[in-house]
Every structure is written in C-alpha cells, then in structure tokens.
Simulated assay, not measured.
Amino acid sequence: MEPYLNLLRDVYTRGIDKPQRAKVGGRSLLCRSLFAPNPIRLDLAAGFPLLTTKRMAIRPVAVELLWFLSGSTNNNDLLAQNVRIWDAWADPVTGELGPVYGKQWRRWEAADGRRVDQITELVQNVRAVAADPWHPAARRLLLTAWNPGDMPPPTTPTGCHTLAQFNVTAGRLSCHLYQRSADMLLGVPYNIASYALLTHLLARVTGLGVGEYVHSFGDAHVYENHFEQVAEQLTRTPRPLPTLVLADDITSLDDVRVDQISVAGYDPHPPIRGEVAV
C-alpha cells in the first residue's frame, strides 16, 4: 500500500489548510487539501489492498458493499448487521439516507421514467466484452453515483466516490475510480478496499482474472483533528498484503453473502482511530 501512503504523505506535507463545511461536535474544522493529486495504482493480483499500517476489518467493508449492491438506502439494514459507519447521516427516526449509492446503482431514474439497474447492465456488458473484444461496450463499462437531478442537500455524502470505469484486457478486469471528495485517513482506505472487492466479485461472476485498481481524486484532504493520527501512520512500515478469499459458489452479485468473503494472511499494525467529520 505504498501508493496510498505516498499520497497521504503528500497531502499531509504539501496540502493547503483551508475552511470547509464539516464539523466535529459543533466545531468547524480546517482541512489540509490537495486538488487532483497523482492517482494511486495497485496490482490486484499482488495482494488485496487492505491497509496494513493500521488494522481494518474486512467485514464492515463487505457489509457496506453488499448493502450498496442490494439497492438499499436505509441505515437500519446496516445496523441489523452491527455496522454503524453511516449513522451520522441517517434520519434518526426512519433510518433513511436519501438517494445514496444503492439507489443510483440499482434504480437510477432516467428522464423518460425508466429505472436503470446499472449493476445488471455492467455485468452483462463485461461478459459481452470478455466474449468479444470488439464489442462496443468495451469503453463504456461505467458505474456512476452522481445523478445531478437527484442530489440531496450537501450534508449527505452522496456520490463521494463518483464514477468507476472498468476495463477488460487480456482476460483481466481492472477498475478506475474517480472520487470527488476524499477523507484520506478514514474514508479512502475503505473506499480502496470496497472497490477492490467489487472488482474481484465482478471478475468472479464474469469469469475473468483481476488486473489493476486505479484511484483518482478531486479534493484529497486530511481534517485537522486527524493530523496526529496521520503523523503516526506515516511512521509505520507496511507489511505484506493479505489474500482475498471468495467462496467458490459465488455466481451472481445479487446473492453474495458476507460469510462468503474473507481475507487470509492479514497481519496489520494496531488500529488508528479518528472522529468522523460531518
């Protein structure tokens, strides 16, 4: 995970401190920000990119991704699995989050009234390109979460990871994620693991190997209440990446279970905690 750590160091040492909307405990924070830094590039065949300079749990990553894939936009579905990463943004009564990723991925509202299931279309198109490299979908393997006509107020973090493009080359599936807003300490390590997992799952159900994971950023930032944690993380030496283990009977993205996803050989440094800015 040296590419991630190099970017974290770059943002921490070269970023510009500036005001932004998020707060902790009612207190406004500065964030140290770089716009459009160099992307991260990882070989997914060389190991699963679960950060080793601090302990991360694969289960919340998998639960959240499967929640996206289910089409749910209700935090209660996460709470039922003891995952609380969306609590700060959910309606305290209903648990609803608004038109977040599950809706955009599975029920995108088109201008003509249709509801587009981007995941179903993505799987079909990846299979078509794998079977025929001349297929016109080859450069249209896109998954987008940014629907301008369906954006809630800016206090909801909809579409932070905005657009993923997939590529089939020589029997391998690669993913390029563009993220408009990136919390480098807390959010980005989960985003990397999440889209790497999505790439592995998509490759599995389409009969492909995995290629590269590329991650580009708009505003990459470190909140001021995370400065000490970032400094600590940058003193640690990365350890070998774990291996992702997927159950052999995964054949569809619609019925993957959390217990079918695990990692082997994970030996991270101790956790580094930070309070999320809302």
Rank of each mutant, 00 (worst) to 15 (best):
V263L: 13
N6G: 13
P157E: 13
L186E: 00
N225Q: 13
P136R: 12
P3W: 01
P189D: 01
L241A: 13
W146S: 08
E121T: 13
Y213M: 14
R239S: 01
V63Y: 01
A277D: 05
Q165R: 12
L122R: 06
L51E: 00
F217D: 00
V205M: 11
W89I: 03
P271C: 10
S181A: 14
I272G: 02
M56V: 04
D259V: 10
S33K: 10
L177M: 15
C31I: 08
R14H: 15
W134D: 15
G211I: 11
H226L: 11
W86E: 00
R236W: 04
H176C: 14
A231E: 15
K23T: 15
A196L: 05
A57Y: 02
N74C: 08
V214K: 05
P268E: 00
V263R: 03
A36D: 14
D112H: 04
A36N: 15
A130G: 07
V100N: 08
L201D: 05
L78D: 01
V24E: 06
V278E: 11
R41L: 14
W134H: 15
W108C: 07
R41E: 14
D91P: 01
V24T: 10
V11W: 04
V278W: 06
G159V: 09
G98T: 10
R9E: 15
P19D: 14
V129T: 03
E96L: 05
V214L: 14
H215N: 03
R14T: 15
G211F: 07
G98A: 09
G171Q: 06
R41W: 07
Q118H: 06
L198H: 06
A247G: 15
V116M: 11
D17Q: 13
A88P: 03
P136L: 09
N74K: 03
L201C: 08
D87E: 11
A203P: 05
T120F: 02
L208Y: 03
L34E: 04
M56K: 02
A80C: 04
Y101S: 02
D219C: 13
G47Q: 01
D17W: 15
